[in-house]
Amino acid sequence: MDNAEYQHKVSKLSLRNGQNYSRSLGQAGNLLSSITKRYSTIIASTPYEIVDEDKETNVAKDIIKKINDQIAQSQEGRLFAIVHLAGKQFRITEGDVLVVEGYWPPNCGDKISLDKVLLVGASDFTLIGRPLVQRGLVNIEATVIEKTLSHTKTHFRKKRRKQYKRIHFYKIPQTYLRINTVKVTGELNNPPEVRGLEKAIF
């Protein structure tokens, strides 16, 4: 291995904790190995780690390929997802029933798709959105099965010694949703195009 090639390789190595050691790279030949050696011998020191970017990207590619293969052969099994719906987050999977509280326009029998997906998981992998999973990658469909009112809630205010007492009763509209499908469509990093969501604010 000649010197230029070696230096190229060394320059791709960086320390994960963000410290800048680039100024010493010129003579870094035996130094780096000594650092790693020294730090590995200390029993409970700060866990410095040398990261090879090439290796990292290869590992990532490999994992993504594995997931894509699993999805293509539909061997991913049951999926669960975390969706953001009407101001709350729900962990859902196929066949669940969830209740959305407050005024919400959809009517009974309507089929809706839930697009604000924060996370999708299967038994072998988890896709975590930053903050949302790629648009169009996950297809979650739900049916509105019931619209009703909650139990009567009491709002009672009283101020002592001030002759002030108010009592107020109210009910909250509730909408029951049945989750029909939770599916990953298309490939990771290459999801199918979705139309009609241009104006949606996520």
Partner: peptide
Amino acid sequence: TQSSDKTGIRLRKLLHTDHPSVQ
């Protein structure tokens, strides 16, 4: 739009799932 008489019933959970853990 209701499925039963809901008066006097308090829901304890707002989610029903038969698969509490996938992983």
